[in-house]
Design a binder for these strands. Sequence first.
DNA 1: TAAGTGATCTCT
DNA 2: GAGATCACTTAA
Length: 174
Amino acid sequence: MRILKPEDFESKDTPRLARALLGKFLVREFRGKKRRFMITETEAYDGPFDRANHAHKGKTSRTGVMFGPSGRWYVYLVYGMHEMLNLVTGPEGYPAAILIRGVKEVSGPGRLTRVLRITRALNAKVFTKENGLYIVDIGAPVLSSKIVATPRIGVSYAGPFWSNKPYRFFIAGL
DNA sequence: TAAGTGATCTCT
DNA sequence: GAGATCACTTAA
């Protein structure tokens, strides 16, 4: 078992990283309790040209964290009530992130953050054990035949080219 | 199918 | 400052 490091997400191949995150475990240490959840669904938001990516219009106070180095959390509020958990990827200056949409037994990005008690307090925090939210690899890769890729959810505003890209990944049959 | 909810961004 | 929009969930 290995705790992943910020440098493990420096690649610009965001879809590949998103796919590789499946089967890893999200570990939440909160108020003295530690819980592990297997990541089962992710989405890639890949760089400045991806029109579905919040950062495609440039750096703002919200999206600035995506332009920084990999391995930070990007947490934002959507629809007035749901916090979304993303892991920033790519080298400094390349805005990209992976939305963690689901873990085993918890489907949906809004429910995930509610169950794990994740809020914007974690936004821009480095992904470490000290911050109470990190990822471990238990060394059990997911069979590629079990991984399904589809278009991302809720991004029709990005136009057909970007909204149809198969940047959503999940483990079939859970 | 649509309401709920508030931060963010794009105009004035 | 106002108005539209939004990487969702739940109840009907």
